[in-house]
Simulated assay, not measured.
Amino acid sequence: PECSKALAACKALGAVLVVAKLDRLSRTVSHISRLMETTVFKVATMPEADSFQLHIYAALAEQERKFISQRTREGLQALKARAAQGDVESVAKLNKQVEARRKTALQNTIAVATQAVVDKADKVSQSYADAIKSAMFDGVPTLSALAERFNTLKLPSSRGVVGNWQAVQVDRLCKRLGIAFP
């Protein structure tokens, strides 16, 4: 996503995109070739390279990526074979890998759930913005008075409880909305 933003900015400004290394821009010759047709870019590690040289370096980078992928697959297969034969160290490495994947998946799940809670809280907070602004217009002087007004209007709190507003809750709500209440 950030690369797309940078490419769009370069096109809009007529600027040259500078990348640290060619393989940070793309790892396939076809993608590099398409980019060369639409975008002017320079590679910091080879600033004088022309399009022919960039194609060659892109081809080498693509091939190296394939070699790395193949070596990784072969190494994992060998590790699994040693583990199947009862090698304790190999079993431990595989278990560590499984645990790392599980932990990453759990962290991603927690991040998504946390963002959902924040989004819901933001949405609920927005529903109170008009009531706060109306109270300010009407001259409600304090957070306690605003809490009492919410209780009188029978506005449910973020947890759905009616008549339970307190000044501290109203203060947090105003801060979340970026409203400076008197």
Rank of each mutant, 00 (worst) to 15 (best):
L17Q: 07
R176F: 03
R101Q: 14
Q115C: 07
K21E: 08
I68T: 08
H31F: 15
Y128A: 01
P1A: 10
W165I: 01
T28R: 15
A58S: 07
M136Y: 01
S127H: 11
T104L: 13
A61Y: 00
F52Q: 09
A15R: 15
A105F: 04
R172W: 08
T39A: 12
P47E: 02
S157A: 06
A84F: 04
G178V: 01
L173A: 00
V88T: 03
L79P: 00
I32M: 06
R101T: 12
T39M: 11
L17S: 06
T114L: 08
L60M: 10
E64W: 12
K103A: 09
H31C: 12
K133M: 11
G139K: 05
K21W: 10
F137N: 14
S158D: 01
Q70E: 15
C10Q: 04
V43A: 02
V18S: 11
Q97V: 10
S158V: 12
T38C: 13
M46S: 09
V40Y: 05
L60N: 13
L173D: 00
Q70C: 11
G160M: 11
T104I: 09
A131K: 05
K103P: 00
A135N: 05
F181L: 09
T72Y: 12
A49N: 08
A8F: 08
K133F: 10
T28K: 14
W165C: 02
L153E: 05
L7W: 03
A61L: 00
E99T: 14
W165K: 06
T72E: 15
K93G: 01
Y57V: 01
D138S: 11
D138C: 12
A116V: 07
S69T: 04
T114A: 11
K120L: 07
K96G: 15
T109P: 09
A167D: 03
A84W: 07
M46G: 04
P47W: 08
I110Y: 05
V112L: 06
A49G: 05
Q70V: 06
K154R: 13
L35H: 08
L60K: 13
T72A: 13
A167C: 05
R73I: 08
R73Q: 12
L106S: 15
K120V: 07
S90T: 01
D119M: 13
M46P: 02
Q107R: 15
V88Q: 06
S127F: 06
E64T: 10
G163H: 07
L106P: 10
A113E: 09
G14T: 15
L60W: 11
D119C: 09
S69Q: 11
